[in-house]
Structures are given as structure tokens and as C-alpha cells.
């Protein structure tokens, strides 16, 4: 006659049974993460637009120096698991000393968004110098957009995840079939 299981053994056994039934849908996780990246890119575009509006503009000085205006040198990059998936920001993400680009370090399991200005004057405007007070434009733009993060990210995730779900595809196919069926 088999020995009776203690309550702890029963709980462990139930947990093992349940765990065996859980299947990780890796494709859905990937799509959800890529959805986050899509949403962050949309957010980055909004931050950059706002920062460009706030940034001081001096077209005469820029023309005199023969360089683009600082406000127009904004750039964006979004990385997913170390791969750049959005934006044209230069620089290799794993390098800490990327030549000609920003120093962007991203982890293997991270989605990273970077918004910046490539002009060498940008940080001087943002934080000030000995002879000039700070005229912040990037951090205020970021702070204004942070409350709307969910508005950017949630729909983007929804788009990706819905597109990859077998269940959604099933219901969409059923809907299409019902619409195609001749009415009595």
C-alpha cells in the first residue's frame, strides 16, 4: 500500500502538474517586446519634436559657421536585445567608444530608447556654461512625454501581439467565412 502524501508533498505534486501544462509562447513574448520597441519609437519621435521646439534657434550663426542648427541635429535610436530596430542614431550599441556615434550600451534582455542631439553645443545649451545659464530643452521634453508612455506603448504592443496570436487569426478567419457565406 503506497504511503500517504503529506500536504506539502501534495502541494508540490500539484505544482509540478500545473507547471507541466504551462507552455511558454516565445513568439508572443518576442512580439510583445518588439511592440514595446515600436511604442518607444513613437514616444521618441514625440520627445524629439518637443525638444526641437524648445531648443534655441539661431539660423544666422549656424549659416555663419556652416553647420546645421543645433535644434535640427536630433537623433533617435531604439534597441531590442542589442539590435537597433528603429531610428538612425549612429554608433554600435555594445561599444562603449563607438566612433562617430553616441556611447550606447544595451543589455541582451533590454529594450532601450535613446533620444539625443549630435551637435557638440547641445549639452552646453542644456546644462549651461561659465558664461551662459542653462537653457534646458531635452529633459523638459522628456518629462512632458513620460505621462503618455502607456498611450504610445500599449497600442503598439496590441498591434504586434494581435497579429501573432493564433486565436486572433482563428476568429478573424471565422468572421471572414461568415461574411462570405450567402445569406438565406
Amino acid at each position: 500500500m503506497p504511503a500517504r502524501m503529506t500536504p506539502a508533498q501534495k502541494a508540490a505534486s500539484a505544482q509540478r502538474r500545473n507547471a507541466a501544462k504551462v507552455v511558454m509562447n516565445r513568439n508572443a513574448v518576442t512580439e510583445a517586446e518588439l511592440g514595446i520597441a515600436d511604442g518607444l519609437y513613437e514616444m521618441a519621435v514625440s520627445i524629439l519634436a518637443e525638444a526641437s521646439n524648445l531648443a534655441p534657434r539661431d539660423p544666422e550663426k549656424a549659416a555663419e559657421r556652416g553647420v546645421p542648427m543645433m535644434a535640427d541635429t536630433g537623433t533617435i535610436g531604439v534597441w531590442w536585445h542589442g539590435l537597433q530596430v528603429h531610428g538612425a542614431m549612429a554608433g554600435r550599441p555594445r561599444d562603449t567608444k563607438a566612433k562617430g556615434g553616441q556611447m550606447v550600451k544595451t543589455g541582451k534582455d533590454e529594450v532601450v530608447m535613446v533620444v539625443g542631439f549630435t551637435s557638440p553645443l547641445a549639452h552646453l545649451q542644456e546644462l549651461g556654461t561659465i558664461k551662459m545659464n542653462a537653457h534646458p530643452f531635452l529633459i523638459p521634453a522628456l518629462n512632458r512625454q513620460i505621462p503618455s508612455t502607456a498611450e504610445h506603448v500599449v497600442p503598439a504592443m496590441g498591434k504586434r501581439v494581435r497579429g501573432s496570436s493564433d486565436e486572433e487569426k482563428f476568429w478573424a478567419a471565422l468572421d471572414a467565412e461568415q461574411k462570405a457565406r450567402p445569406k438565406p
Partner: peptide, 24 residues
């Protein structure tokens, strides 16, 4: 050292602000 105020958005619901200052 120069302490430069950068931004201080208010959070009305908690009567707080998360202020950013730059240290140069």
C-alpha cells in the same frame, strides 16, 4: 560647483515634484 535647475514638473495628485538639477 554650479547647481543649475533643469526641470521641476509638478505632480498635482501627490503635491510633489520630481525636480532635476545639474551639477557642474
Amino acid at each position: 560647483v554650479v547647481v543649475a535647475p533643469i526641470d521641476a514638473p509638478w505632480r498635482a495628485e501627490t503635491a510633489t515634484s520630481v525636480a532635476t538639477v545639474a551639477l557642474r
